[in-house]
């Protein structure tokens, strides 16, 4: 239990939550207007609505074109306001909760037309947990257990998207999935020029299936990596998504957003400002060697999320926070 507590609540910089909020809320207009403008298109085909279980349990109204437009155009200004206010931490609980509820409703409508996307769980979790963190500003130099729990929840959801999908493959495709022609199917249905090149070498797609299964099964390891090992894992997963995008035009945009912002020490992006606020002369190389210290010289719980040194006491070496801690 103590280990679980430490894992879930080992404090995380509040500034990381503020940065995450900005990215998460700015994503909403991008998603609704550019990446996945399905809502407005579904409004022309409401006859094909087929509600999800949760929409029926909650007695949500059958979507009309007006409801779809109202949800979309309430969400967008709220999300822009929340992103604009995120650096100051103001109104984040009220705005964040409203955004979560409206975005969830928007997804329930959108997924009730015969197709559910599987790239949203981590993002939905992020929208649900971000409002639970109080006092997160991008100039916050402190850390909080509430921030740790929120980011751990998003990390869990990111990893679940890989790990549990391995079991979905075993359930729906059987163990023969790894030796099937499923990736050939993916490329033939929606392959890009790059993807279609691989059809001449089907063994590459065959072995890629083994690679995907292996990657998904070992994905929980990412939750326990620290330092450069964690960066490497995030890099590998991001490269995987970019490769999928290049070959079959499917990109897990909100999932990748969560992968980057929940696992990386993004507070360094705004560290310059924090340093100014605290009157510190600490160098502000984003992601650089010296960027491991906090604004006022206190150690920032960077990648392992647990500070090695007591708060307020600078680390001994420049890379003190960076070493894997076993």
């Amino acid at each position: 239990m103590a280990a679980l507590n430490r894992w879930f609540f080992g404090p995380v910089p509040l500034a990381r939550v503020a940065v995450f909020r900005i990215a998460a809320y700015l994503f909403i207009p991008l998603d609704l207007l550019v990446l996945r403008p399905l809502g407005s298109q579904h409004a022309s085909a409401t006859a094909l609505y087929k509600p999800l279980i949760v929409a029926e349990l909650l007695h949500l109204p059958r979507p009309t074109p007006w409801l779809i437009v109202a949800v979309t155009w309430t969400l967008i200004p709220l999300a822009l306001a929340a992103a604009a206010l995120a650096p100051s931490g103001r109104w984040q609980r009220v705005l964040g909760t409203a955004i979560f509820l409206l975005y969830f409703e928007q997804l329930l409508i959108s997924f009730s037309f015969g197709k559910v996307d599987h790239d949203r769980i981590a993002y939905v979790v992020a929208l649900a947990v971000l409002p639970t963190v109080a006092g997160a500003r991008w100039r916050s130099s402190g850390s909080a257990e509430s921030a740790a729990w929120a980011l751990r929840c998003v990390q869990l959801a990111v990893v679940a998207t890989y790990f549990l999908s391995a079991f979905a493959k075993l359930r729906f495709g059987g163990v023969e999935w790894v030796n099937s022609a499923t990736l050939v199917r993916a490329v033939m249905r929606r392959g890009t020029g790059v993807g279609r090149l691989l059809l001449d070498y089907p063994w590459t797609l065959h072995w890629a299936q083994w690679g995907i299964m292996l990657m998904e099964l070992v994905s929980p390891v990412v939750l326990f990596l620290r330092g450069r090992w964690r960066y490497a894992a995030v890099g590998v997963l991001t490269a995987f998504h970019l490769m999928v995008f290049a070959t079959i035009t499917i990109m897990f945009w909100p999932h990748v957003l969560c992968l980057l912002f929940a696992f990386l020490p993004t507070e360094r992006l705004v560290r310059n400002g924090a340093a100014d606020a605290a009157g510190s002369a600490a160098p502000a190389l984003v992601g650089g060697q010296d960027a491991h210290r906090g604004a006022a010289g206190e150690p920032m719980p960077v990648v392992g999320d647990e500070p090695v040194h007591p708060v307020g006491q600078p680390p001994e070496g420049r890379d003190a926070q960076e070493q894997p801690q076993g």
Partner: peptide, 8 residues
């Protein structure tokens, strides 16, 4: 379930 491309 996360069943993207899960069938054989």
């Amino acid at each position: 379930p996360f069943r993207m491309y899960s069938t054989s």
